[in-house]
């Protein structure tokens, strides 16, 4: 702040008052909604919690991605719950704080989420359009459209979650993920995707699945499909940063240097303020070096 004042300021000072915590000009909102916004921000703040120990130097940090997925997953589940207040749930997780209605951080995830923007291309399609009633879906069914065998073969989830609603599945999957039960988590993410393919929860689940495949399941190609599908569902969505960076990472693992560079450049232009920018820039330099 400064005492520096311009000529003509006085006349406007009566009109434009210094900012305070008083009422207006923003519209009034309920205390509950305020609380939800703050809660969401605090949960998102957990993203910058100290990352789990991992080997240095191999890849750019992915802890941000993992944290974002956990938080956004919980938030998406909560949003889903909020939009379906009358639905009864039998899951224990529904009683957790995460199931309170939350609001996600950007406009784009919720707007325009009614439909997938474009049908997946043949090479990128994830064949996850199975009927929602299918209780357990083996990962083999999401093998790429080209028919390649998918290395991800998650076990069936526990019977207790077979009849759970998608938002419960998302929370459950996040829990399994945090326990290191990658394949079980992956199976649940896929069930969420199948239940409502173009929903916000599905979007979150796709990014989460992509991250799991890339980080823990050794399936970079599958990860690439999931990240791309997520971007199609919600371009510039709340996890855009993670999805775009994930695409670059997947290309890196697959050895597609040109595609990786292109993905990184796209990431840098879209998210110039991301904490991943320094590592992304360094990698672009590496890739462009003669």
């Amino acid at each position: 702040m400064s005492d520096f004042r311009e000529e003509g300021d006085d006349a406007l000072n009566a009109l434009l008052l210094p900012l305070d915590e008083g009422a207006g000009p923003a519209r009034r909102i309920s205390r509950e909604r305020s609380a939800r916004m703050v809660l969401t921000a605090l949960e998102a703040g957990a993203l910058v919690a100290p990352p789990a120990p991992r080997p240095r130097g191999k890849r750019p940090p992915v802890w941000l991605m993992a944290g974002a997925l956990l938080v956004a997953g919980a938030a998406a589940a909560a949003v889903w719950s909020f939009t379906r207040p009358s639905r009864a749930s039998t899951s224990q997780v529904e009683s957790s704080a995460h199931t309170r209605p939350l609001r996600l951080g950007t406009a784009s995830p919720l707007r325009g989420s009614g439909a997938v923007d474009a049908a997946p291309s043949r090479s990128d399609a994830v064949s996850d359009e199975a009927p929602p009633e299918m209780p357990v879906v083996p990962a083999a069914s999401i093998a790429d459209a080209g028919g390649a065998a998918d290395p991800v073969r998650p076990r069936a989830p526990p019977a207790s979650v077979k009849s759970a609603a998608p938002e419960d599945l998302l929370l459950k999957a996040n829990g399994l993920r945090s326990e290191g039960r990658w394949k079980e988590a992956e199976a649940l993410y896929l069930r969420v995707i199948r239940a409502e393919p173009s929903s916000l929860a599905s979007y979150v689940a796709r990014v989460a699945s992509g991250s799991l495949r890339l980080e823990h399941l050794g399936d970079a190609r599958g990860a690439l499909r999931q990240f791309k599908a997520a971007l199609r569902i919600q371009p510039r969505g709340v996890l855009d940063q993670e999805a775009q960076h994930g695409i670059a990472e997947a290309h890196r693992v697959l050895g597609n240097r040109d595609a990786e560079r292109s993905a990184l450049e796209s990431f840098l232009s879209t998210h110039p303020d991301s904490p991943l920018v320094p590592s992304a820039r360094a990698r672009v330099r590496e890739l462009t070096a003669p």
Binding site: L19, D20, E21, G22, A23, G24, P25, A26, R27, I29, S34, M37, V38, T40, A41, A44, G45, R103, L104, G105, T106, A107
Partner: peptide, 27 residues
């Protein structure tokens, strides 16, 4: 929060995007 929302409203046209931007700002 009220300060954040008020500042966002001062800076953007209309009310429609205020909550989304304020949420992003809080994060």
């Amino acid at each position: 929060l009220p300060r954040v929302r008020n500042l966002v409203r001062y800076l953007v046209r209309g009310d429609v995007d205020v909550e989304d931007i304020a949420q992003e700002a809080l994060i």
